[in-house]
């Protein structure tokens, strides 16, 4: 590093609009979330400037909130694990197939990102609802007279989440599998491995960064959601995000909404930090572009 080089202002001119936007739209708001969490909620939409820990005390002592955190964690783990199992094999297939139209498979994988999230979520009502496809077929076959109730429960929420987040998992794993030297598995085979051993001891470990990046994305996205449970879940299938939504939109309790938001940010922040300690964030950037 040459010390003599003068300060070059040009890149900062170019960067300033984007950095200003981030400063005013991300950094400052997060600081204000923290500040507001110490305010007092007086009435609907009215709060008083204060520095007290009432909201935080509620959060730490009320089991309603603990329950929501546990439920959210559980849901995020279930969705992540299922997405990993469902997503790894297709990613492996796309990476290893000799199929000439591989680009088509990849395009189909990106396509869901362009189909509206709310439409994709709603579409499960057409599959599992009382007037849905599954019940339609069952009644048509005469297997049941009354539609079987499958909707508005935890299972429907899980299915909705996996449907929306699975492409993230497949893409991440695919990117990582595609980067593995094709000769490694045959090499392991000639050295006496069974196909399963070759996969388990060579390919699987080398694809872990992609699996980890996909899992992180799915976990964080699930844990931060609130729309899917509203559409597909029943009254008891709320997540932590729903508490924030209720506090801010329904109850207009800004200080509590701020406290809950900061908690969510903090908890998911821990997850991201743990991940980046082990993996670094570069893998994530690679997958996102």
């Amino acid at each position: 590093m040459a010390k003599a080089t003068a300060f070059d202002p040009r890149p900062w001119y170019l960067l300033s609009p984007a950095l200003l936007a981030i400063a005013f739209l991300v950094i400052a708001p997060i600081c204000f979330i923290l500040v507001y969490s110490f305010y007092i909620n007086v009435d609907l939409g009215v709060d008083e400037v204060a520095f007290q820990f009432g909201n935080w005390q509620d959060l730490l002592t009320d089991s309603y909130y603990h329950n929501a955190i546990w439920k959210t964690f559980r849901m995020a783990v279930i969705v992540t694990v299922l997405a990993a199992f469902l997503g790894y094999i297709p990613a492996y297939f796309i990476a290893h197939t000799n199929f000439r139209r591989k680009w088509l498979l990849l395009l189909l994988l990106i396509l869901p990102f362009w189909v509206s999230f709310i439409i994709r979520t709603m579409s499960w009502i057409h599959i599992m609802g009382n007037q849905g496809a599954i019940n339609g077929v069952l009644i048509w076959l005469g297997l049941t007279d009354e539609p079987i109730s499958m909707m508005y429960n935890e299972f429907a929420v899980i299915v909705g989440f996996i449907h929306v987040f699975l492409p993230y998992m497949i893409l991440n794993v695919y990117v990582s599998l595609e980067g593995i030297d094709r000769n490694l598995e045959p090499a392991a085979r000639t050295l006496g491995c069974t196909p399963w051993q070759a996969f388990r001891e060579v390919t699987l470990p080398l694809s872990l960064p992609g699996l980890a990046a996909g899992s992180l994305l799915v976990f964080v996205l699930t844990a931060g959601s609130y729309v899917t449970p509203i559409i597909l879940g029943g009254p008891n299938d709320f997540l932590f995000g729903n508490l924030i939504y209720d506090a801010v939109v329904s109850e207009l309790n800004w200080p509590m909404g701020a406290t809950l938001s900061f908690t969510l940010l903090f908890l998911l922040g821990i997850v991201v930090v743990i991940y980046s300690r082990f993996m670094g964030l570069n893998q994530l950037y690679k997958a996102l572009s």
Partner: peptide, 20 residues
């Protein structure tokens, strides 16, 4: 920093901007 909006949950971004 530029990537940060992806790393922060959208609900938190939304509430933060409203409070600001």
């Amino acid at each position: 920093l530029l990537i940060s909006p992806v790393l922060v949950p959208e609900t938190v971004l939304a509430v933060g901007l409203l409070i600001f």
